[in-house]
Amino acid sequence: MTFPVVAFLFALQLGPGGTPTPNQAPVVPPPPRARPEAAAPAAPSRQAAPAMDGLTEGRYRACVARVRENPEQAIQAASTWRVDGGGIYARLCLGLAYVALERWGPAATVYEQAAAEAQNAGDIRRADFLVQAGNAWIAAGQPTRAVLALDAALATTNLTDELRGEVHLDRARAMVALNNLAAARQDIDRAGSLVPGDPMVWYLSAELARRESNLARAETDIQRAMSLAGDNPDIVLLAGTIAGQRGDRARAEALYRRVAQQAPNTDAGRAAAASLAAGPSPAPPAQSPVQPR
C-alpha cells in the first residue's frame, strides 16, 4: 500500500552524522503524494470540472501523453496552446510538465495562474489549483509562499472535509519547514479530525511528536498508522525508529529487518539495511531538519 495520491510530498528526515541505527534511525520520506505520470488523462482535479468540448479534451489528452513521453516537448506544446487560447487546461498540462522535470517554482507559478483564471471563470477547482501550487512551493523550498497558497485554498467555501483535511496536512509540512512546530501540530491535529483514515496523517503526526520529544504520542500515532497501512515500508521504518528511541531495541531491529527484507529496493529498505549493518550505537537521536525533496 502506498500513500494516497493527494498532494506532492513530505520529508522529515535526519541530517548528516553517519549511518543511523535503531537508536539513531533514519526517517525516509514516504513516496510523493502526487506524480505527473499518475495523472489521469482528464483534468487533474478533485473538484467537479466543467465539461470539455471534444477538441479541448483531445488536445489535453495529447498534451498529458506528451508529458509522460517527453516533458520538455510538452512544455513547448502547452505554452503554444496557452498562447492560442488553451486557458486552464493548457496551464494544467504545463504544470504537469514542470512537475515531471521537478521544476517546482515554475510549476507553482503556473498553478497559481490557473487558480486566478479559475476564479475569474467561476470555476470551483480554484481551491485544487491553489493546493497544487502550495505543494509545489514546498518542494521549491519556499514554504512562506506555500502557506499563502494553502491559506487561500482554506478560505474557499467549496472544500470537502477530505480535501480540507489534506490541505491542513500540507500546511503542516510548510509550517515544519518554517520551524513553527506549534502551528504544524495544530494543522496535523486538524487533519486528523477531518481525515482520520489517511495513514499519512498519523505517520506525520508521529514524526512531529518525535521532534517534540513526545515519544508516547509518537508511539500512539505510529501504531495508528500501522493499523491503516502496516505494509507500508516507510511507516514500518518509523515504527522501528520510535521503538528504538523508546528503548525497545529488539522490536526496533525486528521492524528494521522486516523493512529490509520485504522492501529491499525502496529508500526505506535501503535505510533499514544500512542501519542494521552499522550495528548498535550509543549516540542519541540526531535532530531532524526538514528537507522538501
Rank of each mutant, 00 (worst) to 15 (best):
F3P: 11
V5C: 07
L12R: 12
G15W: 14
G17V: 10
P20A: 00
N23G: 13
P30M: 10
P32I: 01
P36D: 01
E37A: 02
A43Y: 07
P44M: 01
P50L: 05
D53G: 06
C63D: 14
E69L: 13
E69N: 13
A77R: 13
S79P: 07
V83F: 08
I88L: 10
A97I: 00
A100T: 01
W104T: 00
Q113N: 12
A118C: 15
I124C: 14
I124Q: 14
A136E: 01
W137D: 03
L150W: 05
L154A: 13
E166R: 10
R173I: 09
N179T: 05
R185A: 08
Q186I: 06
D189H: 12
D189Y: 08
R190I: 06
G197M: 15
M200N: 08
V201T: 11
W202K: 04
L204A: 03
S205M: 04
S205H: 07
A206G: 08
E207T: 14
E207Q: 13
A209W: 11
A216W: 04
A218W: 09
A218Q: 08
D221P: 08
M226C: 05
L228Q: 14
D234S: 12
D248C: 02
R251N: 04
A252I: 05
Y256F: 07
A263T: 03
P264N: 07
T266Y: 01
A268T: 02
R270L: 02
A272M: 09
A278F: 00
Q291G: 05
Q291C: 04
